[in-house]
């Protein structure tokens, strides 16, 4: 399967001439990359995706796919695959007809359609469901039909708009693995829109964190997590302590903090609450001065070493406190 690089060049989109949905966004997505657009609702991630798909036309800026400017190309000529949160299956058609739709539009000969539909359904483990209607399938099955329908045309680019958002947690995790595995196997360029940071971190090659129509940071999951560039990124991804010691603000992950004896520690305080999370416990510590700190204690034993009310000392390495752009 071929894949294509995607480039957004200074793309801007406003709605009703007032609301700035996407503000001069520039992104370079490599061919074959699993790329996530992450951010809260209204950050412009879905609008960006819809401009790649062609549902929205940018007010200014260009969209390139595979080195070709497709900004003015209508949706149906862009040759992409897309999976929607609501799956958007054709309710009046069978599973096989749904999957065959894109091939039919491409005027693929009938025997080949049948062969490829069967292969696509096998790929998502839905062989035997050909004659069912979407209404007769579970959410997870519908999701897989939507995936098969998008991938059967072998698009160079697959766009996913919160595709797992409607699934329950267990199924969602399973689908995360399956989707990631499938993407790597097919080598397709995948643009994945999500507001779920864990999902983005788990699946992506790279992530663009968006806020207020702008890209805050682009990087690998590790870079985004370990080296957040702005306060927004630091806050949005995982738990964070923001240190204000004069100069630039610094971000410190709770697991970078070590619990020590109060004497000689950087900060001394008292455990307020301890939230048991299974493999770790998240403690809220109120220092004698300043605002409370989150501390993650990973423990091999049954429970954390500190209980609410215990006096503790906190310490960390300076290099773990990341300076943020203001």
């Amino acid at each position: 399967m071929t894949s294509a690089a995607i480039k957004l060049d200074q793309v801007t989109k406003t709605f009703d001439g007032r609301v700035m949905a996407v503000d001069a966004v520039t992104l370079d997505i490599a061919a074959g990359e699993f790329f996530s657009l992450l951010g809260p609702s209204g950050c412009g991630k879905t609008t960006s995706l819809r401009m790649i798909a062609g549902f929205e036309h940018p007010d200014s800026g260009r969209v390139h796919v595979g080195g070709r400017d497709i900004t003015d190309l209508p949706v149906h000529r862009r040759d992409m695959g897309m999976v929607f949160q609501s799956y958007a299956l054709f309710p009046h058609r069978t599973v096989a007809e749904n999957v065959a739709f894109g091939l039919r539009m491409r005027e693929v000969p009938k025997p080949e359609i049948e062969r490829r539909v069967a292969a696509a359904l096998a790929q998502v483990a839905l062989t035997g469901f050909e004659t069912r209607k979407p209404g007769q399938l579970s959410g997870g099955q519908q999701q897989r039909v939507a995936l098969a329908r998008a991938l059967v045309v072998e698009p160079p680019v697959l766009l996913c708009d919160e595709p797992l958002g409607a699934l329950d947690r267990k199924l969602r995790q399973q689908m995360q693995f399956e989707l990631k595995e499938l993407q790597k196997r097919l080598g397709v360029t995948l643009v994945f829109v999500t507001h779920d940071q864990e999902e983005a971190l788990a699946m992506s090659d790279r992530i663009a964190v968006m806020n207020g129509g702008k890209v805050e940071q682009v990087g690998t999951p590790t870079e985004i997590y370990e080296r957040p560039r702005t306060r927004f990124v630091a806050d949005f991804i995982g738990e964070i302590n923001i240190l204000d010691g004069g100069g630039p603000l610094r971000a410190l992950r709770p697991e970078k903090i070590r619990l020590v004896a109060p004497d000689g520690a950087r900060l001394a305080g008292m455990v307020e609450t301890a939230n048991y999370l299974g493999g770790s416990t998240l403690l809220r510590v109120r220092p004698t001065t300043g605002s409370s700190m989150l501390v993650r204690e990973t423990h091999a034993g049954e429970r954390a070493s500190r209980m609410p009310g215990d006096a503790v000392g906190l310490t960390w390495n300076d290099s773990d406190a990341v300076a943020l752009e203001s």
């Binding site: 798909a53 149906h76 609501s86 539009m105 998008a150």
Partner: peptide, 15 residues
């Protein structure tokens, strides 16, 4: 659900 129409368009269906 207009996404159903969009899905068809992405799959190559003209308006």
């Amino acid at each position: 659900d207009r996404r159903i129409e969009e899905a068809a368009a992405v799959l190559g269906a003209s308006p």
